[in-house]
Design a binder for these strands. Structure first.
Lengths: 216, 216
DNA sequence: GCGGCAACTTGACAGCGTTAACTGACCGGT
DNA sequence: ACCGGTCAGTTAACGCTGTCAAGTTGCCGC
């Protein structure tokens, strides 16, 4: 029993005319699962994906041009759930400045929970070049645009100083929360070496400092 | 002319008894050069390194246990030059709060200039497990310890609020500058898509906000 | 001069992403 | 009812990768 051949090949099943997208979804699901299990892209081979789906490796290439685009598609899904998680916070009630704090805390929480996908989503090093047409309505950009609008709202309400432009403030906030996630993730499984305070102290303290520094 | 075989094999030279470390240094130099040229670890193969040095691939394994440790050694060197660059700033003159600002700006400048090595040095995703004994006197930890001490000095001088512990402040500062580097690097060669303000505005503005929020 | 050993080389293995060429199965048209 | 077309795969292979076991070469100390 070297190879599983679970879902499809074992059953002798073969997709009908319109069933291509079915396998495509199945590949995406399996790839995400394997990525979550093994942690990095390189640890998940095309052959392993194909085997888990129950299909031969070249079948993958019927639905994705290459490995990078497959994993971009997987990450794109994660990005969407990320945007869906943060969207409600953007539109929630309360003073703008409180929404900004909640947004940052949600961001860090999401990053910590999805630690396998996060570096792939937000890392500098994603080798694959994102297709330009897909990048147009990138979920991350939607969030960033929402953050800029939220900052403008806070500035209009007099809750944030206006001598720094809204995109500048948004960039500072984004850099801080992103750096915080990376700091926490990097020292995640070696807490005895680097004595960094735990997330429960760092994240609120950082927001205190940032929002204090942004007061008018 | 398929393979270069530059330095050693072409000359018929073979290392004497004590000349092992010579090749080791040469491997490190060549690997660093190739890494800077190609950007990522995966783009630099053991075979390419061996070929550039003028040696067969298994010869590399005489000096490094595997590929990961080779690249860790290369990164460790970069880390040392990083520490050497930041060390003087830590000990330089001026008020502690000014030194903190200069430290942050130097950090970002270093990160931007060494953009190929930076993600490998500071990324979450370095697959290799750093040998525990090497990690003890890690240059990055020395810098972090120096930053904590600097923050304590600033707190003692009454330049930074003392209701947040020094390690907490240091963590916030580190997360911010690191996130700023990643933000700038990530959007480095696609400035038309994400309209993020340039580094010359972001970095000083971020330090303004942080130091304002840290005022007593 | 000779054993020993450091420093390599040769040759190979298993696994990778990817491609070209082939094979069924289903569908619409005549 | 057959039949070409096309969708959805398969088989086989190429060139590449990191890595290892075994063999070879040449210097050093005795």
């Amino acid at each position: 029993m070297t190879s599983r051949a679970k879902t499809r090949r074992a059953t002798g099943h073969r997709a009908r005319k319109g069933e291509g997208p079915l396998l495509k979804e199945e590949i995406l699901d399996t790839t995400e699962k394997l990525l979550l299990r093994h942690g990095t892209i390189d640890a998940v081979s095309i052959r392993a994906i194909a085997d888990a789906v129950g299909v031969t490796p070249p079948a993958i290439y019927m639905h994705f041009a290459d490995k990078d685009l497959l994993f971009y598609a997987v990450c794109r899904r994660g990005f969407d759930t990320f945007a869906n998680q943060l969207g409600p916070v953007l539109a929630s009630g309360g003073r703008p400045i409180e929404r900004i704090r909640r947004l940052g805390e949600e961001y860090v929480r999401f990053g910590m929970e999805n630690w396998q996908q996060y570096p792939i989503l937000f890392g500098v090093h994603k080798d694959f070049t994102i297709p330009a047409d897909e990048l147009a309505d990138d979920p991350g950009l939607r969030i960033l645009a929402g953050l800029v609008a939220l900052v403008e709202e806070a500035q209009a309400a007099g809750e944030i100083r206006s001598d720094i432009s809204a995109p500048l403030v948004a960039g500072i906030l984004w850099a801080s929360v992103h750096g915080m996630v990376e700091l926490l993730l990097g020292r995640k499984d070696k807490p005895e070496i680097v004595r960094i305070p735990p997330a429960e102290e760092l994240v609120p303290a950082m927001h205190d400092v940032l929002l204090a520094g942004l007061k008018p």
